[in-house]
């Protein structure tokens, strides 16, 4: 029998079931949901699941979508090598 779980965060393999259970028991923000489950904390930086995590939070807490972006973005916004990040340049 194969696993019937619905994956939401592919990088960290967090399922819809895990996220809904966590969101319902803690009634928490997207950020807390992320920190509790690691959804969105994998190598893609949440590029696939960010919107899904936000929508789970909103539906479980019945809040309307805030104008501020619920899960903040940080640079680098693309996966880059350490050499690109640490490069020294004279300008």
């Amino acid at each position: 029998m194969r696993d019937h779980k619905t994956i939401i965060c592919r990088c960290e393999e967090v399922s819809l079931e895990d996220l809904v259970r966590t969101a319902e028991s803690y009634r928490c923000s997207s950020r807390e949901l992320k920190l509790r489950t690691r959804a969105g904390m994998g190598q893609c930086g949440g590029r696939t699941c960010r919107a899904l995590v936000d929508s789970i939070t909103q539906k479980c807490t019945n809040d309307s979508t805030p104008h501020d972006i619920p899960l903040g973005y940080q640079a680098p916004i693309r996966p880059i090598t350490f050499s690109i990040m640490g490069e020294k340049k004279d300008e």
Partner: peptide, 11 residues
């Protein structure tokens, strides 16, 4: 970007 519709097996 595109929004996904996660259902079992979508990965």
């Amino acid at each position: 970007a595109e929004t996904s519709l996660p259902i079992p097996g979508w990965t």
